[in-house]
Write a protein that binds this DNA or RNA. Structure first.
Lengths: 208, 208
DNA sequence: CCAGTTCTGTAGTGAGTGCTACAGATATGG
DNA sequence: CCATATCTGTAGCACTCACTACAGAACTGG
């Protein structure tokens, strides 16, 4: 068993509090004073646990992915590629217009900075999500769900572009209704499933 | 005539240099040391001329609008709404993938920050451009160029969302080809002109 | 040539930054 | 109960931040 004085705070709760701060203020805008106040711990505790401000941010990003895992897998499990696209954008609009943390951590937190470490880091996390969608679309194409003429990589990139744009708009105060309209227009470009459709998107959770 | 020692630097050149710094590093990431070094002036000269860092940024934004005026009016003068959308996205991709200043100043510079003054400021500038596009689409609808069922405000917002997303992707290193593919897909959602088409988009500059 | 005005360059200001030394507190293993 | 190990809280580190006081330089008007 681990010896020594036990940690007096819950790491995951602390990460959630830190996430809020980074989300609203960005990486550089979030000072250690802000962070320690929100996490309810003193600076040395933070450093003992996460090493540095950058280390804390890295841990926050992991925690973020962990919290979004369920949503992403639900989206990717949708029956058709078009359902994937629809669920993805609709779910994103709902999350991005949360008034407590508008926009998306992966767009808000590190857009431009003194050094590029953090922007590169969040860009990599965005790219991972794009890759997951691309792979899902490649599978759809092989299964005849997407037409043979379609480009899965371009479609995934298109979807991520809309997503990033929606996040920017949401951070600037756009409403859920406005952004849902945008998502609807965006989905008009998306190829319909070539396969015979058996279930609606909303039924896919109940399916097998 | 104005008395006193004359200014030793060109204000517009200095603003262009400052713009580069804000573009790459963001508002908070750009330190006065960075700015004065790039502008080749000492701090007191900067403060005598622009008042504060925020004042300098405000002047940079005006200078940015001024430099983009030509592009925007060329886009808005296109014969059909669809041509407007096409020229806007294609031109944006070209500009956003400039390796010297990737992305867009209005997205890069103030996404999240300690206080919301600067994000609000750049959001307002983006909203002005969206409003200009929306008015152009409203005119197009009145002229029968856009179908009566279309929503000019939603179309303008859609276009700006794509634009913002393209800027985020470009800042993360996406290529012009990748983003042109995205623009092509995005334009598939855009209603075709209801009016008989006489000229192609590329010919509109030569036209009256 | 001088007074008045405006800008430039040096050399700082206090405030806030990320981070840490150190002492005391709280646990485990023997 | 003691040695060891880990965490907490106070206090403060060196550094950078945006910003400026001040003196001298460079102009205009008289």
């Amino acid at each position: 068993m681990r010896t020594g004085r036990p940690r007096s705070f819950c790491v995951e709760e602390a990460l959630d509090s830190a996430m809020d701060v980074f989300w609203r203020k960005g990486y550089e805008g979030a000072s250690l004073t802000d962070l320690t106040a929100a996490m309810n711990i003193a600076a040395p505790s933070l450093y003992a646990c996460f090493g540095s401000k950058e280390g804390l941010f890295r841990a926050v990003l992991e925690r973020y992915d962990q919290r979004r895992e369920g949503f992403l897998s639900e989206v990717l499990d949708a029956p058709t590629a078009r359902d994937v696209a629809t669920l993805f954008l609709k779910g994103l609009v709902e999350r991005a217009t949360d008034p407590k943390t508008p926009g998306c951590l992966l767009v808000q937190s590190g857009q431009a900075a003194d050094d590029t470490t953090i922007p590169d880091m969040v860009a990599r996390h965005r790219a991972e999500k794009e890759a997951a969608v691309r792979e899902r679309f490649e599978t759809a194409k092989r299964q005849g769900d997407l037409p043979g003429s379609s480009d899965p990589a371009a479609l995934a990139r298109y979807l991520m572009t809309i997503a990033n744009g929606i996040c920017v708009q949401a951070a600037a105060g756009a409403s859920a209704k406005e952004l849902n309209d945008v998502a609807d227009i965006a989905l008009m470009s998306f190829p319909a499933s070539a396969k015979p459709k058996k279930k609606t998107a909303s039924e896919h959770v109940a399916a097998s």
